[in-house]
Design a protein around this nucleic acid. Structure first.
Length: 236
DNA sequence: CAACCGATTATCT
DNA sequence: GATAATCGGTTGA
C-alpha cells in the first residue's frame, strides 16, 4: 500500500508537512533500526520562477549536483551536509523535475532508542535526555544513521528490512492507518499543531512570509525556535 | 581559485 | 547568550 504516500507527496510541501506530523518513520540501517514519530517538520518550496518560489530553499537557484534529489521523484529523500559536520534529511515532494521537500527537524524515538543513543554518543560526552535523542535536524540524521550515502534513496526502502506487521504493532501502539514500509501514518490527524516561521533561515525565507514550520504543540521533542545566526566575520 | 557562509550543535561564560 | 568546530557548495574576481 504505497500509492497513497506517493500521491500525497506530489502536493506542495507546505500542504503535505502538517499532514505528516505524527507519522512514524521506520529506518532500518546497519547499527540498528530506529522508528521516529515525527513531531517537527519544515516545508521548502522550489526554484525561482516556479509555481512555488522559495528564497529559503536549496532549490531556489536551480538544480545542482548537491540538491539534485530535491528535483527527483517524490517519496525519495534528500540528505545534505552542512556546517562541516551535520547532515539533514528531507522527504522529496512534487512531481519529478520540480524542486521541493520537507525537512525532518525533530521526532520522538519510539523504537530503537538504544541504537539512536549509541549513534548520538559518538559525538558527545554527556548522555542526552530521551526527548533530545532526535531533537534538531542534525540529531535526527544522526539518530537514524543517515548521511550523504543515502541521499536520493527511496523512502520506502528505508524500512524494507523490517517486517511490516511487527513494525506497525511496535511503532504505533494505538493503531496504524495505512501501513507503509518506511512510513506509518496515524489513523487520524493529530490536533494542536503549531505553525511558525522557519528556524535558522536567513533573509526573506525565514520571515512570516513563509510560515512553513509545523510542530506538535507542547511536545518535549520539538526543538526551540531560533533565528538565523548573525554572520560574524572570521578573524584569520 | 580564493573567500564566504550555511535549513547546526555542544559547550562554555 | 556567545562561540568554536569544520567542510564543501556557491559565488565572484
Amino acid at each position: 500500500m504505497t500509492a497513497p504516500l506517493r500521491e500525497l507527496l506530489l502536493a506542495p510541501a507546505p500542504d503535505v508537512a502538517p499532514r505528516l506530523l505524527g507519522s512514524v518513520l521506520v529506518c532500518a540501517r546497519p547499527g540498528g533500526t530506529v522508528a521516529l514519530r515525527l513531531t517537527e517538520l519544515e516545508a521548502y518550496g522550489g526554484q525561482r520562477g516556479s509555481d512555488l518560489p522559495d528564497p529559503g530553499a536549496h532549490t531556489y537557484r536551480g538544480r545542482t549536483a548537491r540538491n539534485a534529489s530535491m528535483f527527483g521523484p517524490p517519496g525519495h529523500i534528500y540528505v545534505y551536509f552542512t556546517y562541516g559536520l551535520h547532515h539533514a534529511v528531507n522527504f522529496v515532494c512534487r512531481p519529478e523535475g520540480t524542486g521541493g521537500g520537507i525537512l525532518i527537524r525533530s521526532g520522538e524515538v519510539v523504537l530503537g532508542a538504544d541504537a539512536a543513543l549509541r549513534r548520538r554518543l559518538a559525538n558527545r560526552s554527556s548522555q542526552p535526555a530521551a526527548a533530545a535523542l532526535a531533537r534538531g535536524p542534525g540529531n535526527v540524521a544522526q539518530a537514524l544513521g543517515l548521511d550523504r550515502d543515502e541521499d536520493g534513496a527511496d523512502l520506502l526502502d528505508l524500512g524494507r528490512a523490517v517486517d511490516p506487521a511487527a513494525r506497525a504493532r511496535e511503532a504505533l501502539a494505538e493503531g496504524t492507518g495505512d501501513a507503509w514500509t518506511g512510513l506509518v501514518r496515524p489513523e487520524q490527524a493529530p490536533g494542536g499543531v503549531v505553525v511558525t516561521a522557519r528556524t535558522g533561515v536567513s533573509g526573506e525565507g525565514g520571515t512570516n512570509a513563509f510560515p512553513w514550520r509545523f510542530a506538535l504543540a507542547s511536545d518535549p521533542t520539538v526543538s526551540p525556535y531560533r533565528r538565523a545566526t548573525v554572520k560574524k566575520r572570521r578573524t584569520r
